[in-house]
Design a protein around this nucleic acid. Structure first.
Lengths: 338, 338
DNA sequence: CTGAAAGCGCTTACAG
DNA sequence: CTGAAAGCGCTTACAG
């Protein structure tokens, strides 16, 4: 059995109160006592039980995180900066990976509640009613990262997805493209599904670019679905000269599909992605992408959450909108209608 | 304040003992009492405190995981199956991401101890003495996944890295290549550094293929380093016709470098990777790779750890060696010396 | 500056 | 089948 505070106290010949005090760095302990206690701690290899501590302090230093898919380069990057920021503030992460699995999410939310985590970070927005209800009466600070659920009650750290999608589309238009395909996300998602689609649509409308229904398709953000949707688009009699995919993974899938069809990016088709994940630099041609400030997003998410936890939520009642940025690489080219 | 067991007891007009019993699904509770308690629980929205429970049960259902880099597709995939398997067994994950940061690892190990996690999974092997010492007297079941530290005390779930590297190299040899480059890992790593290098060397020796020092380089498993090492190799007067990189990320970096130099894979150079991560299918040409059974590895790791935790460690005293498998895609081609 | 005692929210013998 | 009491390993008023 690991030694307990009582053992240390006995070993040092003091009360547990005193041991507790030196453990917590309180003043009001004479130096010689402090030294004796410290020695006892070292000799016994004592480490205080965080469990017991949490129970009395009513604080676990735990943050529950719900990630849709740690395997995605976007989410894994966000997760890594969340972890980093949390760790810097002495918080630990309880990580839950949900792959479109509502039951698992419900279960984890329950676990977070049981664990009495100090705060929760959620990175997806496809919530059914059961989850919504649970979340609302959870009484634990919650923050959404990279997504914004319809419920106004919660704070989100996001970019302006509408504007970002608009700007990405405009980039293609400004390159001279007239036939612009779109590979969207899940339309149940407000942020990354609906808003990005509307941004695309409005850009087309504002610049008088024709809307072709066959060029508008929806995937699940993953590479494979980008591939499939692109395949369908290439099956059109006249296919687009440019494609905007709302995730880098899908954009890469689209590029691969184009490649496998014997066409070239960007000579035959331009492709622009979304996220600015590390994949953009790992493929050839390197992928032009509408970049989200992923690192900042993770950091700000944790900072805001810690504000909420410590009760400084006065000003935190508002969403944080981070800036998006078009990063031009090699996958888009101007279209010359000759 | 969230309701406690006492509140439920009062609300239902029974003792806390009885509430505890129905909470834990014990028999020996009359149906009517059980129903009353259940109703009280529902009405109050009561959720038992896992913290308090852990304290008395001396079991936290927590597994601490140390990942070198969640951002890597290999580790994020392993992590996702670890999470899945753990969750299926009602364990939760405390995730620590260490990026070559020994201090952070030490800190987390301490945290794991304080948290009284039931078990620990470690996925890297670059241990300094301080960590080694701490780990050895931790008195918590530890298992290594995908790596094997020199200390014989701990169990590892791995493949035979030596054989896998040997087989990958042999594949290139059998394709007729005579000048075979190598992009290795960190030679401080026994598993993925040393063993894979020796596998490569022995294959060359066994088949009488010339060893060229300039073709032997070492990176840090990431894309960028693969790029750089490849660049150095291409600067040789006569460069290799095939390259074996010990991670898919580095192999992709190598492919990109080759591409950026105006050469083609596999026509001018063949490239073979290692891991079998999802990147292999995301790049063009698709990457031939020596595949580790990543999903199985994660699952087996957790299964073994749970064995250790529950004390069935009789047979668990041995490493688990999983099978590697060469997956041929489009990045290697036979070399015809004309 | 130091310690005895109560309490955090549960579970588990023990007695009935 | 049910409950009073002790205890898990700490911290924190309270008193001295």
């Amino acid at each position: 059995m690991a030694p307990k505070i009582k053992d240390v106290a006995r070993h040092a010949g003091v009360s547990v109160t005193t041991v507790s005090r030196v453990l917590n760095g309180e003043k009001y302990v004479k130096d010689d006592l402090k030294a004796r206690v410290q020695r006892a701690i070292d000799e016994l290899g004592y480490t205080p039980s965080h469990i017991a501590r949490s129970l009395v302090r009513k604080k676990t230093d735990l943050i529950g995180v719900i990630v849709p898919d740690v395997t995605s380069s976007f989410y894994s990057t966000i997760l890594s900066t969340i972890e980093k920021t949390a760790s810097l503030n002495d918080y630990n992460l309880l990580v839950c990976n949900i792959i479109e699995d509502t039951d698992k999410e419900l279960k984890y939310l329950q676990v977070f509640k049981q664990m009495r985590v100090d705060g929760i970070i959620i990175m997806h927005e496809k919530m059914d009613d059961e989850i919504r209800e649970l979340i609302h009466k959870l009484d634990i600070p919650i923050i959404f990262s990279s997504v914004k659920p319809v419920d106004q009650k919660f704070i989100s750290v996001i970019i302006d997805d509408y504007a970002a999608a608009y700007d990405a589309t405009r980039h293609l238009i400004e390159l001279g493209h007239k036939r612009i395909g779109f590979i969207g996300g899940d339309m149940r998602d407000v942020t990354s599904g609906q808003n990005r689609f509307v941004g695309y649509s409005h850009a087309l409308a504002d610049f008088g670019v024709e809307v072709v229904d066959d060029y508008i398709r929806f995937g699940d953000y993953k590479t494979q679905s980008g591939y499939e949707q692109m395949k369908a688009m290439l099956a059109c009699e006249v296919y687009p000269t440019a494609v905007f995919a709302v995730s880098d993974d899908m954009a890469v899938g689209a590029m691969n599909c184009i490649h496998d069809h014997g066409l070239r990016v960007p000579d035959d088709l331009s492709v622009i992605g979304f996220d600015g994940s590390q994949l953009t630099e790992q493929v050839r041609p390197r992928l032009t992408s509408m970049e989200q400030p992923i690192l900042e997003m993770g950091k700000v998410t944790v900072d805001k959450l810690l504000d909420l936890i410590s009760g400084n939520d006065d000003l935190s009642a508002e969403d944080v909108i981070l800036k998006h940025k078009l990063v031009i690489r090699d996958s888009c080219k101007s279209y010359v209608n000759s």
